[in-house]
Design a protein around this nucleic acid. Structure first.
Lengths: 111, 111
DNA sequence: CGTCTCTCCTAGACTTTCTACCTATGCTTA
DNA sequence: TAAGCATAGGTAGAAAGTCTAGGAGAGACG
């Protein structure tokens, strides 16, 4: 059986998380929901991808986190963008634009 | 020192190679040159990525290859798209459009 | 002769993501 | 009251792709 793959474009998850966090403090589970909603169900972040990514970003100093309670009164870890994270987001966004435009150039070359 | 990364968007290399091969038979070295030229030097395919990718695509039956001689009279392996490869290219292209539009949706959400 | 470009290739490391699990709590509903 | 579901956190290990860093040979050109 051929393998059907890819809920995400590899390499964009960090950027997407930083972008969602830039909209205001949000917990991990909420990030995955927002990505799914805003992308109209196209992008689905697996929890096994999400949490390692959050820890990675926090470790690099791009996100900062505090425990608090969610709208349901549950314990949740809220993430916000640090100023280093803001710079990183800008960098990743411009890199994304550069690369996706380059891919588009190739995909548009006439047959 | 922070690590600067990414000559390519992960996961797009196969699609780019199939696309270049769809323009007519071409050898590996030529593929990397065309990708670089068409993308205006933005996308640089390392040889250590290129050749494994070509072998992968040939193994999956998406490319077919014959040895021939290049315009310089040197031995070179020319790749062309098979009909399976054509279908795969169509599939990868529509998936790319779906995903890159979804990423764009998220990146465009107002602050 | 040395060096450059063209052309092919591989091994091993690294990163990211996925699958598949585990845990806990609160709400709903049968 | 029990079961199940959604919410919330997490990990381990596999799979996949790309990069770094090398090797090799042939022809062109000073």
């Amino acid at each position: 059986m051929p393998i059907e793959r890819s809920d995400l474009l590899q390499g964009t998850l960090d950027m997407l998380i930083l972008k969602i966090a830039a909209l205001g403090p949000v917990h991990g589970y909420g990030i995955s929901q927002r990505i799914r909603q805003i992308s109209k169900e196209v992008l689905q972040v697996q929890q096994g991808s999400l949490y390692p990514a959050l820890h990675r970003l926090e470790k690099r100093g791009w996100l900062e986190a505090d425990w608090g309670s969610s709208s349901n009164g549950r314990q949740a870890k809220f993430y916000r963008l640090s100023s280093k994270g803001r710079k990183q987001l800008d960098k990743e966004q411009s890199n994304w634009e550069r690369l996706s435009e380059a891919v588009a150039l190739i995909m548009q070359t006439a047959h």
